[in-house]
Design a protein around this nucleic acid. Structure first.
Length: 361
RNA sequence: GGGGUCGUGGUGUAGCCCGGUCUAACACGUCGCCCUGUCACGGCGAAGAUCGCGAGUUCAAAUCUCGUCGGCCCCG
C-alpha cells in the first residue's frame, strides 16, 4: 500500500505513493485539516482544485458532534462531507490532552468531559478505532497519550508505555481494511523515542506517526526528533509528522524523510489574515498594503492571486467580510500544496538540497 | 437680548451630583505582534486626551464657583 518511488541522492527525502480505499496519495504530502468534517472556509471543490489529495478530520470532534450514528446514516464521512478522496482521522488523543475537561488517564482508556456540554465519556483504544471505522476513515490513528513540553522523563516514559499498550489494543480492535498507523511518543528523550519506535514496529503498522511535537518545545528540538524518529522507522512505511507545521518546518522535515504532514496553520492563519508567500509571511491588515494593488504573491496561480489585490483583501479583513478569510485560506492551502509539489519535483530530480536552500532565504 | 443644555484621545461615550482611589475608563477606529495532530472569522499588545479656554475656592479640581468661547434647544 506504500511504496518509495525515489530517494533523493543527497538527503533523506523520498518520493512515495500511498494507496488508500479512496485513492492514491503522492508523498511528501500535506493534509489540510478539517476537524469538524470541513476544512474551514473551503469547499471540497476548492480543495480539490488546489491539489489536495487527502484531508484530515477528527474522531473526537465528530463523535461529540454530530455523533457517529448520524455520520453512519449519511453513508460515512466521505459522503457526509462530500469529499470523495482519502480521509485520515485523528483519534482525538491530542484533543483529550489539550482541551477536554477533567480528563483522567487510566490504563484501559481515558475518561474526560466533553468540551461542548460537559458530559462524561470514557474512550478505550478499541472505542476510538471503532469510531473511526464507523466514520469510514481511510487512515486511522490510534488513541495515544501526548504530553506537554517540558515533561519529565518519568512522565514521558509512562505516557509512552501507555501509548504502546494502547497501540497493541488498537491493532487488535482494528478489523476493517483501512490503514492503521502507530504513533511514536517519548517527548524529547532520544532513548524513549527509540524504544517507542522499535516496539511499535514490532507490533506492525501500516504507517508511523511522530507525535508529541509542536507542543511548545523549541524548533530545533522538533527538527531533531523528527530526524531521529524518521531515521528509526521502516523505510517502506509512510512517516507522518503530526501537526507540523510552517512551510519551513515542512521542508526541513521532508529532508529528514517525513512523508506526510498536517497543520492548522495555513487555514487558521488564513482566517486571521496572515498569508504565506514566496517572499515570506504577509500580514494583510498591515498598513503598507492599503494601496497595494498587486496580488498576495506574484508567483502564485491561485484563484485569489489571479483575481484580487492586497488592497482589496486588506479591505475585506478590515470590514470583517467573510470573503477575505476565505480567499486567504484558499491562497494558503494552495501555497502549501504547491510547496509539496515543489518538494516532490525536487526529490524526483535529486535536487532537494538546493530546493531547501533556495527556500530558506 | 433672556433662559436652558452640552463641550473629555480620530469618532462616540463613561466619570462630574457626593472633589483625592483619574499616572482619566470603555467601544469603535488606527498601528503592530502571535497562532504548528483547530473549543480558534481567535488571542495579545502599542500609540493616542494636560478632560473647550481663563480665573478662583481648596492641601487637592475632569469633578465646585465665576467669567469666556463654541455647538444645540426654548423664549423674545
Amino acid at each position: 500500500m506504500f511504496e518509495v518511488i525515489h530517494k533523493d541522492k543527497n538527503s533523506k527525502a523520498r518520493l512515495g505513493r500511498l494507496k488508500t480505499a479512496h485513492g492514491e496519495i503522492e508523498t511528501p504530502c500535506f493534509m489540510p485539516v478539517g476537524t469538524q468534517g470541513t476544512v474551514k472556509a473551503l469547499s471540497p471543490q476548492e480543495l480539490k482544485e488546489s491539489g489536495a489529495s487527502i484531508v484530515l478530520s477528527n474522531a473526537y470532534h465528530l463523535f461529540l458532534r454530530p455523533g457517529t450514528e448520524i455520520i453512519k446514516k449519511a453513508g460515512g464521512l466521505h459522503s457526509f462531507m462530500s469529499w470523495p478522496g482519502p480521509i485520515l482521522t485523528d483519534s482525538g488523543g491530542y484533543q483529550i490532552f489539550s482541551l477536554a475537561l477533567l480528563r483522567k488517564i487510566k490504563d484501559d482508556g481515558v475518561q474526560f468531559q466533553s468540551h461542548i456540554d460537559g458530559m462524561k465519556h470514557f474512550f478505550t483504544p478499541a472505542d476510538v478505532i471503532h469510531i473511526q471505522e464507523d466514520l469510514g476513515s481511510d487512515i486511522i490513528m490510534p488513541l495515544d497519550e501526548c504530553v506537554h513540553y517540558p515533561c519529565s522523563k518519568d512522565q514521558a516514559a509512562v505516557a509512552m508505555e501507555r501509548t504502546i499498550d494502547w497501540a497493541k489494543r488498537s491493532k487488535e480492535a482494528h478489523k476493517n481494511g483501512s490503514l492503521l498507523f502507530g504513533i511514536v511518543q517519548g517527548a524529547t528523550y532520544e532513548d524513549l523515542r527509540k524504544s517507542c519506535s522499535e516496539q511499535l514496529v514490532g507490533i506492525g503498522f501500516d504507517g508511523y506517526a511522530i507525535g508529541g511535537v509542536s507542543v511548545g518545545e523549541p524548533k530545533d528540538l522538533t527538527y531533531n526528533i523528527a530526524e531521529l524518529v524518521a531515521g528509526l522507522l521502516p523505510e517502506n512505511k509512510p512517516h507522518y509528522l503530526m501537526g507540523v507545521g510552517t512551510p519551513e518546518d515542512i521542508v526541513n522535515a521532508a529532508g529528514s524523510g517525513v512523508d506526510m504532514f498536517d497543520c492548522v496553520v495555513p487555514t487558521r492563519y488564513g482566517r486571521n489574515g496572515t498569508a504565506f508567500t514566496s517572499e515570506g509571511k504577509l500580514i494583510i491588515r498591515n498598513s503598507p498594503y492599503a494601496q497595494d494593488f498587486t496580488p498576495l504573491d506574484k508567483k502564485c496561480g491561485c484563484y485569489t492571486c489571479k483575481n484580487f489585490s492586497r488592497a482589496y483583501l486588506r479591505h475585506l479583513f478590515n470590514t470583517d467580510e467573510m470573503l477575505g478569510l476565505r480567499l486567504v485560506s484558499l491562497h494558503n492551502i494552495h501555497f502549501y500544496l504547491e510547496l509539496m509539489r515543489g518538494i516532490r519535483e525536487a526529490i524526483s530530480q535529486d535536487r532537494f538540497t538546493e530546493f531547501k536552500k533556495g527556500f530558506s532565504k
